[in-house]
Design a protein around this nucleic acid. Structure first.
Lengths: 111, 111
DNA sequence: TTGACATGCAAGTAATTGCTTGCCTAACAT
DNA sequence: ATGTTAGGCAAGCAATTACTTGCATGTCAA
């Protein structure tokens, strides 16, 4: 299974998700055209296709074949739990930053 | 400025954030010890240090120096907007998947 | 001051990644 | 059948990345 974080690491793939958010169910050619005109991205067809493979492996994009067309749909399902992993667990994370002197003695002795 | 997505792309860096969520304000040596014992990660001290540099460049980790110790604190601030970028904009994203035949005619003609 | 401890810096290496190039298969129209 | 269109497959290349190795800096205790 593909990694969601690694799929999101590339800015071109994030722009592809932006485009699918704006208009869902685009074909590969339509994505190439709109990425070039609207986002100033000069990526080739094969590059976009490989990016879509990565996004599909990460379950962020689902596809539906119809004749010789292949429509791509964004799937926001894997996006929510990846942030809640570090949110909501520690109240000390946001409140007690490096400026607050609230450091325990256990933290002082690393050994 | 560092990229938040690229910082999250590495599984070791995500485990570091897990560790800081569990106990905030750890030193480099304490992180090395707990990553080895609790997460079965056999990363060297320099490797962890470089990972912390990436996390700090992405503003996901803040540091506070005290003598020869350097304490590391997680910062969950950049985590929230990175997902809301694709959520809440399109209702068609989650509801209308590849199985639904709700495809417009404009989608069918890519040219 | 001397030695031990915590961390920083930088060059080198192996693996991964994003992209290109070239050719191929499948569907539709004439 | 032939040509065109949409997409797929795979090898190769350049850039990035994660990690190691070795040494340097700064802090604290004796």
């Amino acid at each position: 299974m593909g990694d969601v974080f690694k799929a999101l690491a590339d800015p071109t793939r994030r722009t592809i998700l932006d485009e699918l958010t704006d208009r869902n169910g685009q074909t590969l050619f339509e994505l190439c055209a709109r990425l070039t005109t609207r986002h100033r991205l000069s990526s080739s067809r094969q590059a976009i296709s490989q990016h879509l493979d990565v996004l599909e492996a990460a379950d962020l994009v689902e596809t539906r074949r119809e004749g010789r067309y292949k429509f791509h749909y964004i799937n926001t399902g894997p996006l929510e739990p990846i942030v809640e992993r570090w949110l909501g667990n520690s109240d000390d994370a946001t409140g007690g930053g490096p400026d607050s002197g609230a450091v325990t003695d256990e933290t002082r002795g690393p050994t």
